[in-house]
Amino acid sequence: MHCQTCGDATSPAFDECQRCGTRHGQPAVLPGVPTYAVRGLGLAVRVAVGATAALFTLSALFPLLGVHLARSAAEQLDRDVLLGAVLAEVLFTLPFVLAVLVAATLVVIWTWRVRRNLDAFSGAAPTQSTAWAIAGWLVPFANVVVPARVVAEVARYSLWRRRTPWLVPLWWTAWLVFSIGERVVAQLEEQRYGRLTEWPRSEAEFATYVTFYQEAFVPRLVPVIACLVAAISFVVLVRRISAAQQDRIARARPVFPGWPGHPGWPGHHAWSGQFDQSGRPGPPTAGVAVPAPVVGPAPGASAATSPQLPPGAGGTIGA
């Protein structure tokens, strides 16, 4: 006897699969419980998170350009060049802010969907409610812990792990270092910038701007490295979880036993493929064998309900 979810051989000594936790005889997806597509959304999340990390890295490296502009302003004693440096940094930062908004929206939706799918998975017993999949990102103080707990449960039950995958604590630790470090660095830079001469006139006053940009580069490396680590680890998590859930959901959508053309349908070999006025199958056509149609999810559908099916033979799905 094999597990309906992961395909491993089961033992009568246990009531559930020792790999994925599915109870013997239960299907991979519980009948009648809605599930949500996550493969396409997961791809969008990975692209948005990767773009956000790249744009932040680009904006964080602006002091390299700032030093060059400040030196040019000091040589020419031109304050307009310094003003141009400020405007250039704004142009570097604005795309990053927009990318953050897009990525944050997609991540919240993805977190809710993958957590909601756990309710339909046999053997899953999450302790974090579906509401926390959204509120956990938005509620102050709770957003320091809750999102990591939600993703940890999703990773365990989606990837059939007894323990939380190491990528989860790596991602969340790097994310916290980035979030806190970026704010601290920004505040320190703001204080240092406020001590500069607003309208420099002498070479010495212009030189303070050169020093400002030189000293701003090294502290920014800490949030940059943390951002890249968090982005890469989260992208890998999203890919693995989305693929595992989507494959599991797909296995719960075979041909409906009651559909015309299925071997269990009376006279399926002679069905004409037409329906009468009442909506029932039309009269049989002699000598015509009609193959059973395969029914799958409608194109673009984001949610589906698992059909009422008896347990079938198990298999394996890639994580």
Rank of each mutant, 00 (worst) to 15 (best):
G287D: 13
V238M: 13
A54W: 03
L43A: 10
C227I: 04
P147A: 12
H68G: 06
Y36D: 03
Q214S: 11
P257I: 02
G50Q: 09
P263S: 10
A142S: 12
L170V: 15
V255N: 12
W175N: 01
L309F: 08
V45E: 04
A53I: 04
R115M: 11
T211S: 14
V154M: 06
G300I: 03
P254V: 04
V45F: 09
R239Y: 15
V144E: 09
P27G: 12
L87N: 07
A85G: 12
Q76M: 10
G279H: 08
P169Y: 10
G312T: 14
L65C: 03
V177M: 13
Q274Y: 14
R220Q: 12
R253H: 13
V107N: 11
P299R: 04
V236T: 07
L159K: 07
A204V: 08
V67D: 01
T105L: 14
V90Y: 14
G314Q: 02
A85I: 02
G267C: 09
G84P: 01
P165C: 13
P307W: 12
L87H: 12
R71K: 14
P31T: 08
Y193I: 09
I180W: 06
A270E: 12
V67Q: 03
F212I: 06
G181S: 03
A244S: 13
G267H: 07
E16Q: 14
R115Y: 11
A250G: 07
F178N: 04
A292N: 08
V222A: 02
D78F: 06
S158L: 03
V290L: 12
P95N: 09
L41W: 10
D247C: 01
I249P: 00
R192D: 15
I109W: 08
T197N: 10
V86G: 06
S158E: 03
P284F: 04
A70V: 10
N143Y: 08
R149S: 04
A44K: 03
V236P: 00
A37I: 00
T130M: 11
I241M: 08
V90L: 15
H269C: 01
G300E: 09
A124N: 11
W175K: 02
P31L: 10
A104N: 06
N143E: 08
V33N: 07
L41P: 00
V102M: 13
A250K: 09
N143V: 05
A298F: 04
R116S: 14
W171N: 03
L98C: 10
A131N: 10
S129R: 15
W166P: 00
V100T: 05
D15M: 14
F178H: 10
V47F: 15
Q18C: 07
T305R: 15
P310F: 02
A142T: 06
F62C: 01
A133G: 02
Q214E: 15
P307I: 08
A88T: 08
C20L: 05
S72A: 15
W199I: 06
A125C: 06
V150Y: 12
G40R: 05
H262K: 05
F256H: 09
R71S: 08
S233I: 05
L77V: 10
H262Y: 05
T52F: 14
A174V: 02
T52G: 04
R183F: 04
P291Y: 02
P310R: 09
R162S: 15
A133I: 03
W175Q: 05
H68S: 15
G273P: 09
Q76W: 05
A9C: 01
V86S: 13
